[in-house]
């Protein structure tokens, strides 16, 4: 894996979410149709319970990964991130809940785009192991 393009509070240039609900801490790479993001699960994460990241935390991580991806092109043009909202989540399969201190790496692929709606597929890994896969529709508020 290459060094991330942005880390930590650097992600605030790509997403409008702020603590306590920031669920991406690394933006590794992006081209027109795909992106790779990351999150190390800290013990104080708002979605952690009994040492594990709970289901909504995984879903929000993917949603914010998509928001960061949507924010990357405006960022390269010097613009602020736009608000993005989940419109639909489909086939969000969770193999296991990740543990505190594991690093999630999520690969997104754009499946289609129309009228402010982006359809993406995502795969989230912890190490070599896939922990979640899904499809998601994201609306970007202009």
């Amino acid at each position: 894996m290459n060094e991330p393009i942005l880390t930590g509070e650097g992600l605030y240039k790509l997403i409008p979410q702020r603590p306590p609900i920031v669920m991406v801490d690394s933006f590794f790479e992006a081209d027109a149709e795909s992106a790779t993001t990351g999150l190390t699960i800290l013990p104080n994460n708002i979605f952690c319970l009994d040492g594990q990241l709970q289901e909504p935390g995984l879903i929000e991580h993917v949603a914010q990964s998509a928001a960061a991806f949507a924010g990357y092109a405006p960022y390269t043009r010097g613009e602020s991130p736009k608000l993005g909202f989940i419109g639909e989540v489909k086939k969000f399969k969770i193999m296991r809940l990740p543990e505190v201190n594991e690093q999630l790496v999520t690969t997104l692929k754009v499946l289609g785009e129309a009228a402010g709606v982006t359809l993406i597929s995502a795969q989230t890994n912890a190490g070599e192991e896939t922990v979640a896969t899904c499809q998601m529709k994201i609306f970007i508020k202009e």
Binding site: E55, F85, G87, E88, V89, K90, K91, K93, I94, L97
Partner: peptide, 13 residues
């Protein structure tokens, strides 16, 4: 444990 969120539509902000 929610192993599969088959479908979720969020129709209102």
């Amino acid at each position: 444990f929610m192993s599969n969120l088959n479908l979720c539509r969020l129709t209102t902000l």
